[in-house]
Design a protein around this nucleic acid. Structure first.
Lengths: 199, 199
DNA sequence: AAAAAGACTGTCAGTACTTACTGTCATGCG
DNA sequence: CGCATGACAGTAAGTACTGACAGTCTTTTT
């Protein structure tokens, strides 16, 4: 259940995962190096031997575990120009990536930019790419006559905001809206767009 | 420009505002009592004379500046059963309230529940109420034959998630999507729903 | 009007605790 | 042997919080 219980990992990875987990939960200033080391099942001394400072530990964790593949590759050859199918692909891919970077996103939210140079830029890279891709998709779908869209970028933005909102709502352990799960929401959001954009 | 530059405020309010502002920006553990007092233009000693402890200062700030009026009152007698008009009212009211509680929401996001008992519950109160109101609204509109909705609660949730996402995106000073402003987005989101739910 | 009282604040010195980080030496392990 | 680690002690800095005293300004009293 706990990240650090995996005994197959090397010491560095145990520390990185424990750091990521605890900092995401309690914030950088809310966790001590002793806490992190203990959670990793190691001594504090080992932590400093590996990473020198607490800052470098966090930076190393970000570098090691931030998923950074290009969004465009994820959609290459996969779009079939059927609105509902393609939107489902976009949705699932979006939520998958956001969930993979969940801890990093939580950290970026909690800490201010001054102390985490460049971290926020990285967490925002995927959403920005996706907006571009989805905008172009709407434009092309419109040219094919399969949908009507007056403002493709705004439509793409709206679609992404829906799912960004749902993701952020889910990020919080103590959810704002219990009783609503992701899958039906995804389905509904797609049908909504399909009906609204239908020629 | 700065909160604490308003010389008409009493010392307590200067401290509360400075605390709210700084804690929202750098987190509870990221700010010192000396910093807060200095930002308020007062001495650290005065801070402790007024509030005793740092915790109580934050709690007092939350109590004093959290906007807590019942959502239902805000919509009483104001809904006219015209979808586009009513959704616009819901949108603007939602964004207004969320913005009014912006600092409190930022703090709730940064700090974990263990140290801020009950804070998160208060920031989540408005969204939950709104979901209820909007769900009932969709049900009634459906009964009036003005819209078709297969799952009113999910539709309401979807609508709110769109705007929650937009708000969260805007919360960040370093926005993910520059060049997109709120007003056109609100307009588009309403038209989207109007088209999708039209009988 | 003058004096006295009271409320509020600043300065400064200081305490107690936490915490990032280091040094030294011993131990286990291939 | 060589390498990684742990146990332990310790340092230096930061920080929440306190106490003592003095200054200022307003209000009250004479």
């Amino acid at each position: 259940m706990n990240d650090s219980s995996n005994s197959k990992l090397g010491s560095s990875d145990k520390l990185l995962l424990a750091a990521l987990h605890l900092i995401a939960e309690k914030g950088y200033n809310g966790v001590t190096t002793l806490e992190i080391a203990t959670a990793a099942g190691l001594s504090e001394k080992t932590l400093f031997r590996h990473f020198g400072t607490k800052q470098k530990l966090l930076e190393a964790a970000f570098d090691r575990y931030h998923y950074a593949e290009e969004m465009k590759k994820l959609f290459a050859e996969k779009l079939v120009w059927d609105l509902e199918r393609d939107l489902l692909l976009v949705c699932t891919t979006y939520h998958e990536i956001m969930n993979r970077n969940r801890k990093m996103i939580q950290i970026s939210l909690k800490e201010d930019e001054g102390q985490l140079p460049g971290f926020r830029a990285r967490t925002q890279k995927h959403p920005q790419q996706l907006l571009e891709i989805l905008t172009n998709y709407f434009i092309e779908m419109s040219e094919k006559g399969k949908i009507v869209t007056t403002n493709p970028e705004l439509h793409a933005f709206t679609f992404i905001m829906m799912h960004f909102g749902a993701f952020m709502n889910d990020l919080d352990a103590q959810k704002s809206y219990p009783g609503i799960t992701l899958a039906p929401f995804v389905q509904e959001s797609i049908q909504l767009f399909a009906r609204a954009l239908r020629p």
